Amino acid sequence: MSVGLGGCVSGEGGGPSDDTAPGGQIGGVHVEEGGCDEERVDIGADDVSPLGFSARDALSALSGERSAPLAWSKGGSTTATVAAGELVAARFVRSTVAKSGPGGAEPAVAVDCADHLQLDVPLAFSTEDGAFDESFAVTLRVPEVGAGRFFHRIDLDALQGSYEVTEVDPTEFREVFVYLSGELTGSAVSGTISGMAEDHPVGTGPEGSVSAQPFSVADF
């Protein structure tokens, strides 16, 4: 069985280069991802999008430091701080539920396919106890002014903080991934740090399989 992290929230992982299609005219740039059909077009920082606000308006409502209490899954607590930086690039995304199956039936699983802006920005994430002190590029998903979500796979080989994976034994798995997801709203921030430990493949070819064990790191 294969287990992965993903979803319709296009652009919430990995930063601009991972999942952002080049700009173009609406209808000319088309992506189908996670149950959503998406058409993306580059916009300028001050261009008023079809949502009624600009990228600069959206980021102004989300920029600046935000802190929240963080609880470690293994026990203990600290404070997490998140800060979004200056706008690098922006896109308007028209998103609709993808048609699939016989007769164009909609997916059975509910997905969030609302129109939104994608804002490429640098993000700083740190914890008061020093476990994390990271900076990386993310793409904020902004459906309305004052609300933005992000998703990022943390590079465990390039950590500036002291965090080490102890929730599982990394030596027992082929690869271990840790993910940061969060939501900025008004002056608040909330989110989770979670992980996925991938087993060594069983078998080869079409009959081969890989299983993965999810684990929780922290909530804030």
Rank of each mutant, 00 (worst) to 15 (best):
P170F: 15
I154P: 03
R149V: 04
E172F: 12
F173A: 02
S162Q: 12
R174M: 09
G182R: 00
E175H: 04
A158K: 14
R149L: 00
I154Y: 02
E172Y: 13
S162F: 11
Q160I: 03
L159H: 05
F177Q: 15
F150T: 00
G161N: 07
R149K: 08
G182W: 00
H152Y: 13
D157I: 14
G182P: 02
Y179W: 15
G182H: 02
E183T: 04
R174G: 09
Q160P: 00
D169G: 10
V178L: 12
F151G: 14
F177W: 10
V168K: 07
L184A: 00
F173V: 10
A158V: 08
V176W: 07
F177M: 09
V165P: 01
Y179V: 15
E167Q: 15
F177N: 11
T171L: 12
F150H: 00
S181F: 07
G161A: 06
V165C: 09
F150R: 01
A158L: 09
L180R: 02
F150L: 08
Y163S: 04
S162P: 03
V165A: 09
E183K: 03
S162M: 06
G182E: 00
G148I: 07
A158S: 13
G182I: 00
R174E: 12
S162V: 11
R174S: 09
H152M: 13
Q160K: 15
Y163C: 07
V178R: 04
P170L: 13
V168E: 14
S181R: 12
A147V: 13
L180Q: 04
V178C: 12
E167N: 11
D155T: 10
R174C: 08
D169N: 15
A158P: 06
S181Y: 07
L159Y: 03
E175Y: 09
R174T: 06
V176D: 04
